[in-house]
Simulated scan of single mutants.
Amino acid sequence: MFARSLRIAVAMGVTLLLASCSVLFGRSIDRPLVYYVRNVTVMADARIPLELIENVDRRVSAAIATTRAPQGAERVVLLVKIDRLGFGEGARRRLAQADFTVTAVSVETGEPVAKGSFRVNGPTDDPRWARQALAEEVAARIRFAFSLTTPRVRKTLPPRTISTRLASEPPPVIVPNVRAAPPRAALVAPQAAPQKPAAPTTQNKVAPPPPREMAAPPVAEVQPPRPAAPAQPARRAADIGKGTPVEQGAVGTIRLRPDCDPAVTADCSASP
């Protein structure tokens, strides 16, 4: 009877101890919680690779950015601490394994409102993708625990090209890019054995071509000048009488014919 009462008392003490821990550190994460998660911080000691820490932080931050804020939910920030990084047991001895703790801290009060410890195993043992796959497993567990949205993978579409070619036209000919051949090293020609100097031979000198005669420039036909009409002597002032149209003291001539003047030239007839 006493032993049974002692067992009951020990069980109640353990229950009260767990309840006190739950009140002190916040409720444990045993099902998806709904909080307005604002940010995340991933921590670890020097034994954890920095690549794993950065990949977990990047994935959880992307999930927080794509999650719609629930109305009336408490605002919290997440503190993720990677405690251990190793390998599994049994059939998982070649797969990476990580133990980490997630604590949700209230933005208003700064007190922890939820806390949980998790263990995940990597899905592959390929050293090229082991850390990436393990980081995705850690981020997926955090997304599930705090009801975060899984971000979509962005697909890169090829750029659109606008073509004015008609459908009836033949397709354009595409010439592949041919890389230029690398310059080859110059081959060293083998040195020939020295030969005896040959007797000098006279070279036939080619006579220069005879100079060509230049054609004479064309000569324009020159017409002989026409004889000019003899100049008519001027009349003296004493010969000019009164009543003539020539004023006193002026010299002038009046010609009745274009070639000579009968008043001046004796042999010039009056009739043309």
Score class of each variant (00 low, 15 high):
R38V: 05
N39Y: 02
V40H: 07
T41H: 09
M43Q: 02
M43L: 14
A44E: 03
D45V: 12
A46E: 08
A46V: 11
R47E: 02
P49K: 03
P49C: 01
L50Q: 12
E51A: 08
L52K: 09
I53K: 01
E54V: 12
N55V: 11
V56R: 10
D57F: 14
R58V: 04
R59N: 11
V60N: 08
S61D: 08
A62Y: 11
A62L: 06
A63E: 02
I64F: 12
T66N: 14
T66M: 05
T66D: 03
T67G: 03
P70R: 09
P70Y: 09
G72P: 00
G72K: 00
A73C: 06
E74H: 05
R75F: 13
R75N: 04
R75A: 06
R75P: 02
V76K: 13
V76L: 10
V76H: 12
V77F: 14
V77K: 13
V77L: 13
V77D: 14
L78C: 00
V80P: 00
V80A: 05
K81H: 10
K81D: 12
K81G: 00
I82E: 01
I82V: 15
I82L: 10
R84V: 08
R84G: 09
L85W: 04
G86D: 09
G86A: 03
G88T: 11
E89I: 11
G90A: 02
R93E: 08
L95A: 07
L95D: 13
A96T: 01
Q97S: 04
F100W: 05
V102Q: 02
T103Y: 15
T103S: 05
V105K: 06
S106Y: 15
S106F: 09
V107Q: 03
E108S: 15
E108D: 04
E108L: 13
T109W: 03
T109I: 11
G110S: 02
E111D: 10
P112G: 03
A114R: 07
K115H: 14
F118S: 01
R119V: 03
R119K: 07
V120M: 13
V120K: 08
V120H: 08
N121F: 15
N121W: 06
G122S: 07
G122M: 04
P123L: 15
P123C: 15
T124A: 13
T124F: 05
T124V: 12
D125I: 07
D125P: 01
P127N: 10
P127G: 13
R128S: 13
R128K: 11
W129A: 14
A130Q: 08
R131E: 10
R131C: 00
Q132H: 06
Q132E: 02
Q132V: 03
Q132I: 07
L134C: 13
L134I: 12
E136M: 07
E137T: 07
V138M: 15
A139W: 14
A139P: 01
A140K: 06
A140W: 09
A140Y: 01
A140S: 12
R141H: 11
R141I: 05
I142H: 07
I142K: 15
